[in-house]
């Protein structure tokens, strides 16, 4: 039964990943990517990684995808007027990625065979076990990751702030021009009245 669940989830994940690439509208791409992420989270559940499944849904489907949706809606990109690559380039992309798949599968054939016992009562993926590992063995990488997140946050805020200042300047210039033209109009009207 778990094998069927595996087949179903894999099929859904690959199908929606293909739809991410081939759907014209970016909003549909984001929604298909959310489906892919949920499938991957269900794979984690099958593999007894409950904590990672929860974190995956929270971080990817909850934070990253919402960020993507915000950007697409802020920039108003939900039209299908995207310039496409030429047919030769598309053909080359499909061929080269197919070749990459052949190479990877050929290289990994028979590397490590074994059967994963799905649904066995292993407690590796629980919070207690992972927390022990994270705060004993991997304490230094954990702290470095926190620094990385802080740096990314500062960088994103700096980039956003710079563009906000420029937009304010543009708006001010525009308002100044409008003000000038308005006063000019008033002067012209006064002159014509006289």
């Amino acid at each position: 039964m778990t094998l069927y669940a595996f087949y179903f989830l894999s099929f859904l994940a690959v199908l929606s990943a293909l739809m991410v690439v081939f759907s014209r509208n970016p909003i549909y791409s984001v929604l298909y990517l959310v489906i892919t992420f949920f499938c991957v989270a269900c794979h984690y559940l099958l593999l007894n990684a409950q904590f990672l499944a929860a974190v995956h849904i929270i971080v990817y489907a909850g934070a990253i995808m919402v960020l993507f949706l915000y950007v697409i809606m802020l920039l108003n990109l939900n039209q299908e007027t995207e310039s496409q690559k030429s047919n030769i380039l598309k053909f080359a992309a499909v061929i080269s990625s197919g070749l990459l798949m052949v190479v990877i599968i050929g290289a990994l054939r028979g590397v490590e065979t074994g059967v994963i016992e799905l649904g066995s009562n292993s407690k590796i993926g629980l919070v207690k076990n992972l927390g022990n590992l994270l705060f004993n063995e991997f304490l230094l990488p954990f702290e470095i990751v926190s620094l990385l997140l802080l740096t990314a946050m500062v960088g994103a805020v700096m980039l956003g702030k710079n563009h906000m200042r420029r937009a304010q300047q543009i708006a001010k210039n525009r308002n100044g021009k409008f003000a000038d033209s308005a006063t000019n109009n008033i002067k012209v009207k006064e002159l014509t009245n006289e």
């Binding site: 039964m1 778990t2 094998l3 595996f6 894999s10 994940a13 690959v14 990943a17 293909l18 991410v20 690439v21 970016p26 892919t36 099958l46 990109l77 995207e82 310039s83 496409q84 690559k85 598309k90 080359a92 992309a93 499909v94 080269s96 990625s97 197919g98 990459l100 798949m101 990877i104 599968i105 990994l108 590397v111 490590e112 065979t113 074994g114 059967v115 994963i116 016992e117 799905l118 649904g119 066995s120």
Partner: peptide, 30 residues
């Protein structure tokens, strides 16, 4: 009812997802 899944299947699934990602980077312009 619980049975195992061969490790190879996971390798193939991950390869397929990775290759679809590469295909998207090469295929789209957005």
């Amino acid at each position: 009812a619980i049975q195992g899944v061969p490790l190879n299947y996971y390798i193939w699934l991950s390869t397929a997802l990775f290759v679809i990602g590469v295909l998207g980077v090469l295929y789209r312009r957005n």
